[in-house]
């Protein structure tokens, strides 16, 4: 199931929640919409689901224009942020809902619905919870019920709105790997909304980074890290530190910061560099001071370094002799530099 959005615009009063969004999702792909809160990612998901109208633009799903097609006729499975389970129904009835409400002509008979519910409960690995009520479940269990309920209608497209936001960190990692595995096994086109870049980078085939109602870059995770299209993406992805620099003769200079110059292919003038912790190597001696250090396996050190009033995350190679309070300087092993000050 492909999804094609063209110049989609949605305004709330004067503010544009979506400002000319283009997005093309391929068959069987898992796409993450990633952005800070208020960037329009949930609005875009709701537009695709048919829960929100548009002021301009065109949306096609599987090549079919969605203008005037209500949510209930789109056949899209949605897992809501807070799951939106029906609290007065048992888990089994929640999952059966999408089949129960079909018109008589297309509704499976009672036994077929029961079989399908049982199969879905097995699929999401909670067969023992069929007769429970949502209020009697843990967050992770509710999430599985919401997923099974959305899958019951055999959706052509699955939309997940911050599906792991309500889970604690430990459960979260397991659940998202499991969901990704399930999505691959079922081969169902999926769009995931998240503000957690680790989640987006780990799960998605491609990530659409959103900023103020626009998609600023739509690329594979590795490409986002290697070639961010704008300073916003460079700063948002990969926990990079944003540092002012001066470009002269094909080299970026960071003084007064004790960071060694970084070769760039930009014209002379002011610049803005984005350096990730793994790209900043600390070496003994210099005007920076090690404030914190955390040993990693294999002898590598994660450091927090203070330099000219700035606090930076850095790394030290195995065998480097550095302790808390020691003086050091930083050598960039890479980084992205954009022309112009910010």
């Amino acid at each position: 199931m492909t999804v094609e959005a063209e110049r989609i615009t949605r305004r709330f009063g004067d503010a544009a929640a979506l400002d000319g969004v283009d997005l093309a999702v391929r068959e069987g792909e898992l796409v993450a919409l990633l952005g800070p809160s208020g960037s329009g990612k949930t609005t875009l998901l709701r537009v695709i689901a048919g829960l929100e109208g548009t002021d301009a633009g065109r949306l096609r799903i599987a090549g079919q224009d969605m203008a005037g097609v209500p949510a209930r006729e789109r056949g899209i499975g949605v897992v809501f942020q807070h799951y939106a389970l029906f609290r007065h129904m048992k888990v089994a009835d929640n999952i059966a809902f999408g089949l129960d409400v079909r018109p008589r002509a297309t509704r499976p008979d009672r036994a077929a619905i029961a079989d399908r519910v049982a199969a879905l409960l097995d699929l999401v690995q909670i067969p023992e919870l069929a007769q429970r009520y949502p209020d009697q479940l843990s967050g992770g269990q509710r999430q599985r019920v919401a997923l099974a309920r959305a899958l019951a209608i055999e959706p052509r497209l699955l939309l997940l709105d911050e599906p792991f936001g309500a889970l604690d960190a430990l459960v979260r990692r397991d659940v998202r790997r499991w969901v990704r595995g399930l999505q691959e096994r079922l081969g169902i086109t999926t769009i995931l909304v998240t503000h957690d870049q680790e989640e987006a980078m780990e799960m998605a085939d491609r990530v659409a980074v959103m900023e103020r109602g626009r998609i600023v870059q739509f690329d594979a995770p590795a490409a986002l890290l290697e070639h961010p299209a704008t300073p916003f993406v460079a700063g948002f992805i990969g926990d990079a530190a944003q540092l002012p620099c001066r470009i002269a003769g094909g080299v970026a200079h960071f003084d007064p910061l004790p960071i060694a110059p970084l070769p760039v292919s930009l014209a002379d003038g002011p610049g803005t560099a984005f350096l990730r912790p793994a790209e900043l190597l600390a070496e003994p001696g210099g005007s920076a001071v090690v404030r914190l250090l955390r040993p990693q396996g294999g002898g590598e050190l994660h450091l927090v370094v203070e330099a000219a009033g700035q606090v930076l995350d850095a790394r030290a190679a195995p065998g480097t002799r550095l302790a808390r309070g020691d003086a050091c300087h930083l050598v960039p092993r890479g980084g992205r530099v954009f022309p112009g000050a910010t």
Partner: peptide, 15 residues
Amino acid sequence: LGRDAEEAAATLGAT
């Protein structure tokens, strides 16, 4: 109750 539950019902095909 919020709109969530009603919206969920709509996406599942309920009139």
